[in-house]
Amino acid sequence: MNARPPAGSARDAVLARIRAANSGVAAPAVPRDYRRTPTVSGEPLLELFVDRLVDYKATVRTCAPGDLSSTLVDICREWTIVVPPSSGLTVPGAVADDGLSHTQLDEIDAVLTGCAAACAETGTIALDAGPDQGRRAITLIPDRHVCVVRADQVVHTVPELLARLDPARPLTFISGPSATSDIELHRVEGVHGPRTLIVVLVA
């Protein structure tokens, strides 16, 4: 048997097939008549966000900016906590992630982070591995995720959410705790990802 075909030949072949198949085909214009701007703002927007979070079994705590520290201490008091190394959000006794192994992370009860942006209509929180969120593994392996969302991070629609994010960064979109519908299409919360999601909305 000869070795594999030289590198590039499969590429050239596939591209040639595509060009042959596409000869004479014109691309249509894309209509964008769907909503791309918010129709809800202020208090009703935050109410919508909380409603959608609760519907997908996240726990929501709302607090004023001045009460954030005490709220976080209250939520986290019974758990061991990991936080990103240079996060502005922390609680006394929290472990800063300095490259903990997967096994070490598996022994920690909860992770405390901020977020990059959030979408009210779908109850979605987006993480972009920023300084208050850390690398992806720390928000994945611990069984509880406490996520702080500021009111000014909440947008109404999915298009607004994507516009706030930088695709060059690794992104994770979270809508409620991990879930499955694989058994008779009934939704069951809590599989491999964190089984508890607590959102602290600062408003």
Binding site: C119, P170, L171, T172, S175
Partner: peptide, 21 residues
């Protein structure tokens, strides 16, 4: 697909991020 407003998790990545993943 699942009849959800948004599925619980969506991951996006662009190539390799040093120190993450």
């Amino acid at each position: 697909s699942t009849g959800e407003r948004m599925n619980p998790y969506t991951s996006t990545w662009s190539g390799v991020t040093p120190g993450d993943g």
